[in-house]
Design a protein around this nucleic acid. Structure first.
Length: 896
RNA sequence: GCGGGCGUGGUGAAAUGGUAGACACGCAAGUUUUAGGAACUUGUGCCCAAAAGGUGUGGAGGUUCGAGUCCUCUCGCCCGCACCA
């Protein structure tokens, strides 16, 4: 007795000291490599969708991935801790369910963001990267995630970008990378070209400068070849709906028809794209985009000056000007007319900047009565307005106000053979008519454009291409080699017309085009140059260094020139999930089938073997990241994966089976940013409260897909709770009961297990934590607790507070580690609900149902008795029920 | 304009169509310590002095024995895309 008291008082003094506990376990986990999965020998019930308990317990590979962070000098963002905390909880849960969980981490260090910071702080990006890398990995260690630290990836590491360049070459060889001159988005502040996706409201995504249009020679990836498959596959993905919809909209499929009209008095035709050919009897003008090829060609002498001036003016307008000018239409008449074969109507051809050069054919046919923009245009320039659809209110009068413009529904009038039909039937009939008469062809148009991949910057992987003037003038390139010819025969590349598409890549090889690549000598290393600042001339800083760009042609051996642009960061992040599984393979980029793995020069037998085996972890089982990457990163990663699939390198088309978009952590109602001064430094909180508290607090804040507002008082509340749990476990070790649990305790335990398990499966971390708190409140009021309850409690809590629970698990004398223990299961028989639903029958007919209170102590007879006595039942029936029938499945069925 | 989502206490938020507000923050009272903080107990949607009771999920209808939840309309807010033919 005395000795027990003694120990008790001693133990009571063990204060919760997160710092020492967390350091202790982090280094022990590292030493024992408990989070390093068996990549080569994991059970490979290959990526089956079997989620039965059997499969779960069998060591099935589970690729648990988070979007890797781009390291900034400020260090890890508290938002990243939120994401990483969330996915780590999920990963630890899956591990305890018996999966072989692979949870890697790395840094997306290339790109404008890091480069700009290096410029600002006057450090070289390479040195800057080393510094931030160290800081990031230190912070990432401190949050206690179950990372597979042996499989790190940094995009700026030559071992990595060697393969990024290799992917570029593969796309080139398949005709999916090409070079062309085009008007591209140019940010005058970042001094680089931007992709369409990086332009937001006419402004640069990063610095908000107004984006200009510039005519430059650029590399593109033919993502548009995959538009249809990228769209179709969305149906098969287990992704957040919001993201699926965003992707669908971005691809923007439109089914319509291209109609070709002859230009009067000229040997020219103009082709327009429309989804509404049904209204073609009402067509009164044609409008071309300012950049349209025919714009000047068809313009009459008299109109030449006006049109020229208009085109010049509109092409110099920035996107933002076009938006700022609102809906006020502008335009210039070319003096030419196109003839509508349906009516013989002479449609004047105008140039207007409300027509987009990049959409459809860059030309439209104007039907002012049934399109608001066409109406505004016609009204401004006094063009005819012909009604061909009745208003939904039956209005058949001339259209003179914009409110009368009927766009969506109605009955056809003034339209010859279409009269009386609804617009949808009329559309089909007209399309058939046009095709039969050879006026046009059905056409599918997409909003998606080709991926502009070159960047005139320093901090990225050099594009591994070589220009040889000699070869180019002689019509030679890689495509004229035997291997190139072989590629032409590949039919399955997502190309609409492989022969034609590939040939056009070759035919486009002019003297300034790259026809060769240095495949055997990858990587093309990014040199350490002194002056790495962007020049703003449309050329990369590397163009100042002959020692970099001077080389010899792999084809003819004569002097040649390297490409000096680097590739877009999004290419780095489009395939990193593949590399994580092969960081130790020197000669093979990622897991792949044997016949492909064998092709790599220098690949050892062992490497090939590993490349084959590790396919069992692909595709990514669970991917978590920000919704802000809905279109950019996720679409690019899908495209690259699909292209690699078509080349036979990966057996799947889609990289991420399941994607979950988490919310954002904000501070005082605003996004955290340096300029607002509301940045949260996680180090401060980890130092003060420990990682366990910070993780649990962030996840308790609100639903995981919604994020939440960071508040100090909330962190303290969570810290109080964790300390309470700690103290409770310290003290309760002397009141452990090994005998049977009370039925109340059993019920609480099983409800907690069931609730937490379901919540974790659905990533509802906040409610899972609430359940743990409820159960704690119950346990702490018990005089005695059982060992089973304590252990189960720790197991449920383990994913959230991995260090503290590990420590307490050990103090209970359990084997290392709690994170390798088996997730507790619940027993349905303890889960009797408090309320039962009872069906009320009168003379054998269902009259309704009522809720009756019951507890787990109640047996069948008692429940029946309770139901009979229930006041609501009596009230409802206006008499007491005579007979109560028990129906399995927790429903009571009783009769009067 | 198109697409998606949301609306519940002072706050963050819970609720397979079945006792609305779990859990936490905050607040209040008390206990203890006392310099302060911390810890512990109790209370806390609103109305009423309290109890009894009433009322209550933006608003109006509807389906249902029963609606925060499903349907229709309406108001308000947020996010994404946008002169896309």
């Amino acid at each position: 007795m005395a000795s027990e008291k003694n120990i008790k008082s001693k133990t009571k003094n063990v204060k919760y000291d997160p710092k020492s506990i967390e350091l202790k376990w982090q280094s022990k986990w590292q030493q024992e490599a408990i989070y390093q999965p068996q990549l080569d020998s994991a059970n490979s019930i290959l990526a089956s969708k079997d989620v039965s308990t059997e499969a779960k317990k069998s060591g099935k590979p589970y690729y648990n991935l988070m979007m890797f962070p781009y390291p900034s000098a400020e260090g890890l963002h508290v938002g990243s801790i939120y994401t990483f905390g969330g996915i780590d909880v999920y990963g630890r849960f899956q591990r305890m369910l018996g999966h072989e969980v692979f949870e890697p981490i790395g840094l997306d260090g290339y790109g404008i963001h890091s480069e700009n910071h290096a410029i600002k702080t006057n450090t070289h990006p390479i040195d800057h990267a080393k510094r931030t890398e160290e800081n990031f990995y230190r912070q990432l260690h401190a949050i206690g995630n179950s990372f597979a630290w042996d499989n790190k990836v940094e995009t700026y590491n030559p071992d990595y970008y060697r393969w990024t360049q290799w992917i570029f070459v593969q796309l080139f060889k398949s005709g999916l990378a090409y070079r062309k001159s085009s008007a591209v988005n140019f940010c005058p502040s970042c001094m680089t070209v931007l992709s369409d996706e990086q332009v937001i409201d006419g402004q640069c995504e990063r610095c908000n400068s107004v984006v200009e249009k510039k005519e430059l020679e650029q590399w593109f990836f033919k993502i548009t070849n995959y538009a249809e498959r990228l769209l179709q596959n969305i149906e098969t993905l287990d992704w957040t709906d919001k993201v699926r919809i965003a992707q669908r909209n971005w691809i923007g499929k439109k089914e319509g028809i291209n109609i070709t009209y002859p230009v009067e008095g000229m040997d020219e035709t103009v082709t327009v794209f429309t989804t509404r050919p049904d209204t073609n009897y009402g067509a009164t003008f044609i409008a071309l985009a300012p950049e349209h090829k025919l714009a000047l060609k068809i313009t009459s002498k008299e109109q030449r000056e006006v049109v020229k001036a208009y085109i010049e003016k509109s092409l110099h307008k920035s996107e933002i000007d076009r938006v700022a000018e609102g809906k006020e239409k502008t335009g210039a008449f070319t003096g030419a007319y196109a003839v509508n074969p349906l009516t013989g109507y002479k449609m004047p051809i105008w140039i207007s900047d409300f027509v987009l050069g990049g959409f459809g054919t860059g030309a439209l046919v104007g039907v002012p009565a049934h399109d608001k923009r066409d109406f505004q245009f016609a009204q401004k320039f006094g063009l005819d307005i012909i009604r061909v659809v009745k208003g939904t209110d039956g209005d058949q009068s001339a259209v003179t106000t914009i409110e009368q413009v009927q766009e969506e529904a109605g009955e056809m009038i003034n339209s010859g053979f279409l009269n009386g039909m609804n617009i949808h039937d009329a559309t089909h009939k007209m399309m058939n008519y046009i095709e039969d008469h050879k006026y046009g062809r059905r056409e599918v148009s997409y909003h998606l454009r080709d991926w502009l991949i070159s960047r005139q910057r320093y901090w990225g992987p050099p594009i591994p291409m070589i220009y040889c003037e000699d070869c180019a003038t002689n019509g030679k390139s890689w495509f004229t080699t035997a291997e190139g010819h072989e590629r032409l025969k590949i039919k399955d590349l997502g190309l609409k017309n492989p022969e034609k598409d590939l040939k056009s890549s070759i035919l486009n090889l002019k003297s300034d085009m790259a026809g060769w690549y240095p495949e055997e000598n990858l990587p093309v290393k990014l040199p350490y140059v002194k002056d790495f600042k962007p020049m703003g001339t449309g050329k990369s800083p590397l163009a100042n260094y002959p020692e970099f760009y001077e080389t010899n042609c792999p084809g003819c051996g004569k002097p040649a020139r390297r490409e000096t642009d680097v590739s877009d960061t999004f290419l780095d992040s489009a395939w990193y999930f593949l590399r994580y599984l092969a960081t130790d393979l020197e000669h093979i980029p990622f897991p792949m089938p044997e016949e492909r793995a064998k092709e790599f020069a220098g690949a050892t037998k062992e490497e090939i073997d590993q490349a084959i085996k590790r396919q069992s972890f692909l595709p990514v089982t669970m991917y978590i990241g920000g919704a802000e990457h809905s279109v950019l990163h996720l679409l690019y990663a899908r495209f690259v994966t699909m292209a690699l699939h078509d080349m036979g390198y990966v057996p799947f088309e889609e990289p991420f089976s399941r994607f979950y978009a988490h919310g954002l952590i904000i501070k005082d109602g605003a996004k955290m940013s340096k300029s607002k001064g509301n940045i949260i430094n996680p180090d401060d909180y980890i130092g003060k409260y420990g990682a366990d508290t910070l993780r649990t607090y962030l996840l308790f804040l609100g639903p995981f897909n919604q994020g939440g507002d960071f508040r100090d008082t909330g962190v303290e509340g969570m810290n109080r709770f964790i300390k309470r749990v700690w103290t409770f476990f310290q003290n309760s070790q002397f009141s452990i009961l090994n005998s049977q649990l009370s039925s109340e305790s059993l019920k609480m335990m099983h409800e907690a297990i069931k609730g937490v398990t379901e919540d974790l499966e659905g990533l509802r971390f906040n409610t899972a934590i609430a359940k743990l708190m409820t159960w704690y409140n119950f346990l702490s009021k018990q005089e005695r607790v059982s060992r089973e309850e304590l252990e189960t409690y720790l197991q449920l809590f383990a994913p959230f507070a991995p260090h503290m629970t590990e420590e307490l698990w050990e103090s209970l004398g359990n084997p290392f580690s709690i994170h390798k223990s088996t997730w507790p299961s619940f027993d349905e028989k303890h889960l009797v609900k408090d309320t039962l639903t009872i069906a009320v029958q009168v003379n054998g007919k269902l009259r309704g149902t009522l809720a009756v209170a019951a507890s787990d102590k109640d047996n069948r007879a008692m429940i029946e008795e309770k139901a009979r006595a229930h006041t609501d039942v009596a009230k409802f029936l206006q008499t007491e029920p005579k007979k109560v029938i028990y129906v399995p499945g927790k429903i009571l069925n009783f009769v009067v």
